[in-house]
Design a binder for these strands. Structure first.
Lengths: 219, 219
DNA sequence: CTGTGATTCAATCATTTGATGGATAGATAC
DNA sequence: GTATCTATCCATCAAATGATTGAATCACAG
């Protein structure tokens, strides 16, 4: 049995897929309440009822969008992990910052949507996915900060969150931050990467060194 | 001439002030579009028309809220600056992270609102305050990363943004992140502080050391 | 061609939501 | 006491918005 979402992803030309694509972008920009079904329909160039025909209701569409972007992000992270697999920590960070940043700058709706979900409430109750927690633990393991994705200590989770969030922030806040630093697009992207590396690499490598010294002394 | 906002701040018991207070909280939780004037009025225990009588319209009220929280935050930062004034950089960071974090955990609407403004669009056009950019530069100077608030280089602005945002993230995302690390409130706050210091202090101090070595060599 | 199911749209509905007008009560000035 | 100004609420409006219905159109198997 294929879910509507899987069907949409299979054929990117289908109406289902076109709607989902536009919905990603608009929900990402305006958030759940800031988006109207009419905005999405207009952008796709169809009637609202067609949208309802394919996706049920606004809420349903939104949920599908969330699942969709999480799938994309997770897949990208798996891809990144393959590249950085056996490198030392500082290079792992360096490369994964580059790759992840580039990818998210090409798909800013992903960062937008994730952050809006973190920081904004929905009037209607009960939305909480276990997806994010789960793959935050994944990243921890992939960064070599935890053995397996079960039993990642809170301190490590927090560090991973800090890294991921700082990336999303600069992507999603581009409209705000870029004018502040008076840079055009390419320059801004370069600044983001440099800043992320400046902030994160010392933290993890310095403390790694500390741990190494410590374990030497102990052995 | 006193603006309505100044009047409201003067007398915290006034209806104006009570509305503003509730509006801060609700706009912070649900964002501009997610908040209805009725939600605010109900929470205050008044009729919507009373709200309109005092603050004009939803948009006006929202703008006032934004100005209000920026005033509060700025004042706090000035306060923090006095404390850390002449200390070495690593202590400056350590203390200002403690103070700022504590303050924002007591007033999470501030972080909520700032982040929602960064990351979410409003359907209606033209909202851009120059307040934020301005005092990002202020922080840079206060952290000793720039001589004066004019002419702060983009790289420095980005670093300051990274620090401020990472704080706001953990405050505003508490509802999401705290369950992820399975911590109760106090523990979470401690984790946040530890993580922030873990991430940021090495970055700035390590590079300061680098600069120092460099300037030694040059002299 | 014809019937059948899938897809799309125009029209419409019910509710929500931002906003206003006018009545009422209270305080203060004269 | 009367006038005036402030503050509040009730009733209501007009627009926006999520959703549905039923008719029209299209694709295509038989």
């Amino acid at each position: 049995m294929t879910t509507p979402l899987e069907k949409a992803r299979k054929d990117p030309e289908s109406m289902k897929a076109r709607i989902l694509d536009v919905a990603r972008r608009i929900f990402g920009q305006y958030g759940f309440h800031g988006t109207t079904t009419r905005m999405i329909a207009r952008e796709v160039g169809i009637d609202i009822s067609t949208l309802h025909y394919h996706w049920g209701g606004k809420k349903d569409l939104y949920e599908s969008v969330v699942v969709d972007i999480n799938k994309d992000l997770r897949q990208k992270l798996v891809e990144v992990e393959k590249v950085i697999h056996a490198l030392p920590l500082n290079e792992r960070l360096d490369i994964s910052i580059d790759l992840t940043t580039d990818y998210l700058f090409e798909h800013p709706e992903i960062s937008n949507l994730i952050l809006l979900r973190y920081f904004g409430k929905t009037r209607s109750e009960g939305n909480f996915d276990s997806i994010i927690p789960e793959f935050t633990a994944d990243i921890a393991r992939s960064m070599g900060l935890a053995r397996d994705k079960k039993n990642v200590p809170p301190e490590t989770m927090m560090k991973v969150l800090a890294v991921m969030n700082s990336i999303h922030n600069f992507i999603s806040g581009e409209n705000f931050f870029r004018p502040m630093v008076k840079a055009e697009r390419e320059r801004y992207i370069a600044l983001v990467k440099a800043t992320l590396k400046f902030i994160h690499i010392p933290a993890f490598t310095q403390n790694e060194a500390k741990y190494n010294r410590l374990s030497c002394r102990l052995s």
